[in-house]
Write a protein that binds this DNA or RNA. Sequence first.
RNA 1: GUGGUUGUAGCUCAGCUGGUUAGAGCAUCAGAUUGUGGUUCUGAGGGUCGCCGGUUCGAACCCGGUCAGCCACCCCA
Length: 470
Amino acid sequence: MTKPSLPQGTRDFGPETVRKRNYILQTIRAVFETYGFQPLETPAMENLSTLLGKYGEEGDKLIFKILNNGLDRPEKEQDTREAFEKVLQGKNSIQLTERALRYDLTIPFARYVAMNHQQLTLPFKRYQVQPVWRADRPQKGRYREFYQCDADVVGSRSPLNETELALIYHEVFTRLGLTGYTLQVNNRQILAALANRCGGPEKMTDITIAIDKLDKIGLEKVKEELAQRGLSENQILLIEEYLAVKGTNEEILSGLDKLVGHDPAGAKGIAELRTLLQSLSGSLLPTPGSSLPSPGSRLIIDPTLARGLNYYTGIIFEAKAPKEVKMGSIGGGGRYDDLTGLFGVPDIPGVGISFGVDRIYDVLEELQLFPADVFVGTQVLFFNLGAAESARAFALLQGLRQKGIRGELYHENLKFDKQFKYAEKKNIPFVVILGEKELGEGRCNLKDLRSGVQHSLTWDELMETKFTER
RNA sequence: GUGGUUGUAGCUCAGCUGGUUAGAGCAUCAGAUUGUGGUUCUGAGGGUCGCCGGUUCGAACCCGGUCAGCCACCCCA
């Protein structure tokens, strides 16, 4: 008998954890719905060919591959051995593995759109909340199985989409109490323009990977890395100038304009950021007396933001937890002009965002932002004080359940002490005590465990009780 | 994938240069307390010291391997 254990990087979620996660997910779903997004689910596994090559070389390594069934069949032995040789040489072989676990939600969505675009009314706005798997080494805030919540719009080039997605971030984080979040934005077009001035489009990946690390490793190291990646001194100088663009959003925009504004891509990128900025500041009716920050105030234009995924082509987002929590990114997204092109369906542009639920959970936990009522499951516990008493209690309980009250009858006639402690442990706010005396009088005692206050009620009065907090 | 670090009761951790029977707090259970919980007091149960191997008269402790957690790098949510 071996001790039971979990695969590396996976977790069980106990009742309390699930409640807290649901609180986050319901908040996000509700906001998605208010913006007209519709739910979608796709299978846990995809054909490996659907996923390979979509996440870069590193990404391919992190895809969990599923071993084919039936490899032990004798008549296939020769094929299997050859396939295994290929794997030893670092190649993938569909002889051994033709399916893999979903790595993110965006590519499966693109696959879905490519397969169904004729039936979909465009623009199609969907949201998706499902687990994804990555064969990464686990560490803080990083798991091998985790949930993503994505919202994407495909079939529209309107900048309204970017505005709405930014507002969704704002609405969700505000509702969750994470008012100190920041939304970093940049535009791939600007990075493309920079690459054009530094050796051409093929240098874009090298440049973005290096400058993305600026706040982590510092300017000198970034310059070293750029040199390593084959950029000339002049080009590095130009990038240094680019990285030196700082200040308010307006100042950054005009700084960028000087550097790459004459490039068509650069000009386009800058204009798109301007549009986003303006539409956000115009998006709210003034609410007198509100101390909540406005969406525009949380937006930071960050020229160093690059994001690893290569399919982004326009505006890119990255949501960061409030500074006091060392967590980094809690969401990200961007515009991709031709994602379904990978699946043979060109000209369907899209833009999407993603929430990192597990990280948001950790942040809310650390900042103690879960509301108290998240922890209440059962609202009322009926004490079990004998056969006749509990029969009456059960009837009353059923009446309350029909009214939507969450209640339980204690399972055995044990002493008070036990029954009280059960209520306490389960965080049940109310108990109903209905013993021999109360049974005779047609009454019961309702006790609020938090205040310790107890009232005597008739059974009819009990049925009208709401059992809400205080 | 690379490097560092940790692994002792359900949980958090002590455990000296290797030396008889491995401890504490919290939690659990029982009692004080058979219709009023949270406090208090008393007592009890609970461990192949992650796993496998090696060194030694003797290993929780030293060595090797392995698995898992954490941290950093790579990358990323």
